[in-house]
Design a binder for these strands. Structure first.
Lengths: 343, 343
DNA sequence: CACGTTTACGAAATCGATTTCGACATTGTG
DNA sequence: CACAATGTCGAAATCGATTTCGTAAACGTG
């Protein structure tokens, strides 16, 4: 059995309250007693019970991270988010609890709030906008500070750390247009996620600015419910009556998969087909050919998300916190001149 | 304020004990009252306070994962461990708490044990064997179930989920020998980690079996305390009086870094130099050239680690649990015939 | 009908801290 | 010296659950 505050107070012949006040530097304690208590605590290796302290203080010093690993191969990006988050949290004496099976489960989030297991929640990759708003309302009602990741939410009152997905997709599309591409495939998601919506808007903007007609047949939805949807998704583009000369995939891992499928099919990238991803995960730099992508700065996003959440926890709600971090086009070798434009 | 058990009992006109017993299916409660309580709990959205429950039950339903992200670029492997762990844990109604700044800090681990924040601990990538043993003793003294990852520990009483690093290194070395290499560089770590020790033993075994003399000048230690130690480490091999024709790196990311350094130096892989990694992380499959490596099955290791830990928690100590999972040589394109042997 | 059993419930203790508030001792002041 | 101000400490309440144990009511049996 670990030593409790009672053991300490017995040994020292002082009351529990005095011990507590001495160790927490609160209330009136003479400097001598404080010294004695501190000394004895060190000797006995006393560590307050987290549960007892949480119960009394009504705070846990833990924050929850709700993620959805398997969805559309975003796991790399999520993985790169975590070390930064944990580091910042631990510097502030908080810990990170992972919740991987709560995504989309309103009831689960509600239980999490009510059980008061955490002092705040970071939600990465959630639902459609109306669901996000509903979720936020729910958490607000439970007085649970929370932050959404990593997209802007066109809705007052939501706190988020985001990047500009409109701009990201626009940068990629412009890059391809500059390389002479006119038929650019765009992979989107079956559900109306905000990220998806934003990127589609950026894609459309870039086309319009270049005077290229928007061809809806070039915009295909992935469907993660299918078996091996990555390859299905890739072939769907290739078997189009007029296939694209370049394809924008939703995430780097999707694009990377496309790279190896292309090799199997003896399609040369970028000579026959240009391929781009999104996120700028570490592995995108080492593929053959190296992947063109847009980088969302995962470590900074993670850091800022935790910092913001801690702020919300400290001031207890108040103004929503909205941060947008810059994205960066990383043009590498998987995109090249449009072969037809060359002729 | 969330609704408490007191609110529930007031509303129903029964005692708190009855409510608790009804909801936990414990003790004597008539089926009618149980029904009424359950019903009311649902309506009010009652969720027991985690802190109060933990305090009373003396368990938290959480397990701690202690990792050391930056060390020798093992972060990819760690990242691939996590989803499996979290999934298994959550299926058993446990959650995962991440501790990234505790590695090597005995005092920190002790505090973690004494605060009773978690019911068990998984330690991934720790210290030297004697430190590991000391750590284990400490945790045992605190009655804290724990598991080490991911190497065998030649010491009775330690629970671990491991792979056979001797065999892994032997497989790689044999593979290179079969390709005609005689001078094989081996990257080892400055500290005497068990993994390092085992792999070195496997390397030596394979050399001996092939009748190749062990040349200590081919065995170089990386030193993560240096700036950009990855490239330092790579060049150290190249600038040897008699440089190796093949190099075994300690992790895939190290080898991947070597791949791009080689490209910068116009050294062709595998024509001029063969390069191999270790771990078999996902990105090792997509590099140019694709990396030869030994795969440690991260998802299975993660799953098994949590399963074992839960077992230790359930039976409360008892026999140590020791599992060894198979490794697999994945020969890809970064290793090839020894250019000198060819001549 | 008397008496032992069973059933259903609640009062109170408990887990281990923190915090409030009152009591006592000490010191300072006129 | 009387009294107010100050400094230290501890008793007790509290946080929100779970669990033990006692009791009263309902039931069955000879």
């Amino acid at each position: 059995m670990p030593v409790t505050i009672e053991d300490l107070s017995n040994k020292l012949g002082v009351s529990r309250s005095t011990v507590s006040k001495a160790l927490n530097d609160r209330g009136d304690v003479s400097s001598q007693t404080k010294e004695r208590v501190t000394q004895a605590a060190r000797e006995l290796g006393y560590q307050p019970s987290a549960a007892a302290r949480s119960l009394r203080r009504q705070r846990t010093d833990k924050i929850g991270l709700v993620v959805n690993y398997p969805i559309y191969r975003v796991s790399d990006f999520l993985a790169e988010l975590i070390p930064g988050m944990a580091t910042v949290a631990e510097e502030a004496a908080y810990n990170l609890i992972l919740y991987t099976s709560l995504a989309g489960k309103t009831q689960g989030i509600k239980s999490l709030c009510r059980s008061r297991e955490v002092d705040g929640i970071i939600i990465a990759w959630p639902q459609q906008l109306n669901q996000t708003v509903a979720l936020s309302r729910l958490m607000t009602a439970e007085e649970m500070p929370h932050i959404f990741l990593p997209r802007r939410l066109p809705h007052a009152g939501l706190s988020y750390v985001a990047t500009d997905h409109v701009q990201g997709a626009r940068l990629l599309t412009e890059h391809l247009i500059a390389l002479g591409h006119r038929r650019i495939g765009f992979q989107r998601l079956p559900e109306v996620y905000e990220t998806d919506h934003d990127r589609h808007a950026g894609y459309v903007e870039a086309l319009r600015a270049a005077g290229i007609d928007y061809d809806p047949s070039l915009v295909l939805a992935a469907d993660s419910s299918e078996v091996d949807y990555e390859s299905k998704s890739f072939y769907a583009f290739l078997t189009l009556p007029q296939p694209p000369t370049a394809i924008l995939f939703f995430t780097d891992p999707m694009a990377i998969r496309a790279l190896s499928l292309a090799r199997e099919q003896r399609i040369r990238v970028p000579d026959d087909l240009s391929v781009a991803g999104y996120d700028g995960v570490l592995s995108s730099a080492v593929t053959a050919p190296a992947l063109t992508t847009v980088r969302q700065p995962a470590p900074e996003i993670g850091k800022l998300a935790v910092e913001s959440l801690l702020q919300l926890i400290a001031i207890g709600g108040g103004e929503p916190l909205q941060h947008t971090l810059p994205v960066e086009l990383i043009a590498r070798d998987s995109t090249g001149m449009n072969p037809r434009a060359r002729v």
